[in-house]
């Protein structure tokens, strides 16, 4: 039972964070706060992906020791790398593409996906903030309910004007 809970405690904590982000973006009327909530939501997705890729006892996915250059470990000077490349070239000719790994590594794929997602996330966040700046300049506020009220007023005023114009045209 304890093992079951410990195995899933991470997921539950991440779901909690996700719900905090969702709550902030739902409940707050301030647009900047809302964007911060969306970015918390997005970070929690990244946390979830990375936690799936963790392997018990593994290290960061950077090959070391016997997994590279067939034995004499450590160091990555230019000459050593070239020697390693030659060694691998000979290994390639004997046809061993799939190496048996000696050390344990975590899964690199979620890391790659999330690395790019974070950078794209900040880019999209800044597009959203630019839109908010323009909304502030057009409406004078960044509270969504006030923006909605101003929209409503303008729509009603436009309708009244239109009706007036129609009445005048008829008369």
């Amino acid at each position: 039972m304890l093992e079951f809970i410990l195995d899933r405690a991470n997921y539950w904590a991440i779901i909690g964070l996700m719900m905090i982000g969702l709550y902030i973006s739902f409940a707050s009327g301030n647009l900047i706060k809302r964007l911060v909530g969306v970015s918390i939501f997005q970070t929690s997705i990244c946390l979830f992906y990375v936690t799936l890729g963790k392997v018990t006892g593994g290290t960061a996915p950077i090959l070391y020791g016997p997994d590279i250059e067939g034995g004499h470990g450590g160091g990555h000077g230019a000459e050593e790398t070239h020697a390693a490349v030659d060694a691998v070239l000979t290994a390639a000719n004997s046809g061993e593409r799939y190496a048996d790994l000696v050390n344990t590594y975590s899964n690199p794929l979620p890391h790659v996906l999330m690395l790019t997602a974070i950078v794209v996330g900040v880019a999209t966040l800044s597009v959203g903030l630019a839109l908010i700046v323009r909304i502030r300049e057009a409406y004078g506020t960044i509270e969504s309910d006030e923006v909605r009220a101003i929209d409503m007023e303008t729509a009603i005023a436009q309708e009244a004007e239109q009706e007036k114009a129609e009445r005048e045209a008829r008369a």
Binding site: V88, L89, A92, R97
Partner: peptide, 12 residues
């Protein structure tokens, strides 16, 4: 990238 210098598979 393998094609940049016309390498065999395994060339780096």
């Amino acid at each position: 990238y393998q094609a940049l210098f016309h390498e065999e598979p395994g060339g780096h």
